[in-house]
């Protein structure tokens, strides 16, 4: 007897082996090996040098700046994403499809082009940049430019996560809350937000990962001033170009760890959602049993 039976539509044994082998080979070659190499290179000359590379002043400055850019981009895009999703999912207005397209712009534009747009807009030679410079505000080749670029490239993540979710849920629950006497703010806090919380968290995780890892746009507006406008990805590039492989891969391992952490967090969120659904199903079965007992008692 076979341990498990296959559905009649399943492929033959050889085909399954071949397909699995191709998938495993591909994953190893393009994901697992590079991942392994990053840590191997970083630790190639011992833990001591690894820590030294991370504790280096320039590295610490880069980490700080990366954290700063993320700390600004995250709440900004959280608020913006929720507002935009609310607008698009709940209201019909002229220019709705235009707004929807604009939200996707950072996805469709190359990050380098995005960086160049900021340089052109805020550079010293542009009217706006000149005016800001005269009032003591420097955007290009400064921290504010890096923050702006980070905000720009992470613009769509929260909104794109929420819009389909809110559209599929519809506005009826919110209308029900309003009829019951709730204010707009109460409705938002007690009905809208709890309904989208997992989608929102998912969007935040993605925004965080992208904000920390962004290279192209930030590279253009940064100007590469050491200790001032260097983020972690830029720092890695500089170290690599200077043949400081241990330093470059040590910093790279940090970003890789972040990526892994993001994946874990993402899996956790998905797992919790699945578990909540499973629990609801389980409880339903309990309730059914309870209902039967209840009915039996009533009829007795």
């Amino acid at each position: 007897m076979r341990a498990f039976s296959l559905p009649p539509t399943a492929e033959g044994r050889a085909t399954r082996w071949l397909l699995t082998a191709v998938a495993v080979l591909f994953l190893t070659l393009f994901l697992l090996l590079p991942l392994f190499v990053v840590f191997q290179q970083a630790l190639a000359q011992g833990l001591g040098l690894y820590w030294a590379a991370l504790a280096d002043n320039d590295a610490l400055d880069a980490i700080k700046l990366t954290l700063l850019a993320t700390a600004v981009a995250l709440p900004l895009n959280l608020v913006f994403g929720v507002c935009a999703a609310w607008c698009i999912a709940r209201f019909e207005f002229r220019g709705k499809s235009l707004l929807s397209t604009l939200i996707d712009l950072p996805f469709s534009v190359s990050p380098v082009v995005a960086g160049l747009m900021y340089v052109l807009l805020f550079g010293v030679h542009s009217p706006l940049g000149g005016w800001l410079e005269a009032h003591g505000v420097k955007v290009v080749f400064a921290v504010s430019g890096i923050v702006l670029a980070s905000v720009f490239v992470t613009f769509p993540f929260v909104a794109r996560e929420l819009i389909p979710l809110m559209q599929s849920q519809g506005a009826e629950e919110e209308q029900a809350a309003l009829v019951l006497g709730a204010s707009g703010w109460q409705t938002f806090l007690r009905v809208t937000l709890p309904n989208v919380k997992w989608g929102l968290l998912y969007g935040v995780i993605l925004t965080n990962a992208r904000a920390m890892g962004e290279f192209g746009a930030v590279s253009v507006v940064s100007g590469h001033i050491r200790g001032e406008t260097i983020t972690l990805p830029l720092h890695i590039e500089i170290l690599y170009n200077e043949y400081n492989f241990v330093g470059a891969f040590a910093c790279a391992s940090l970003l890789t760890l972040l990526a892994l952490l993001t994946l874990v967090a993402k899996t956790l969120v998905e797992w919790r959602q699945a578990r909540a659904a499973a629990r609801a199903l389980h409880e339903t079965q309990d309730r059914r049993t309870q209902a039967m007992i209840h009915l039996n008692q009533e009829s007795a």
Binding site: E172, E173, Q175, A176, A177, L178, V179, L180, G181, A182, S183, Q186, R190, V191, P194, N195
Partner: peptide, 30 residues
């Protein structure tokens, strides 16, 4: 929210993340 009407939606529009008790209590608690 000031009309003091009760409205029952065709597809119920119950708050999916709240228990039956909290659903019924919502109007009083806000």
């Amino acid at each position: 929210s000031e009309r003091q009407v009760g409205f029952v939606f065709q597809h119920y529009a119950l708050f999916r993340h709240m228990t039956v008790f909290d659903n019924v209590a919502f109007g009083l608690s806000v």
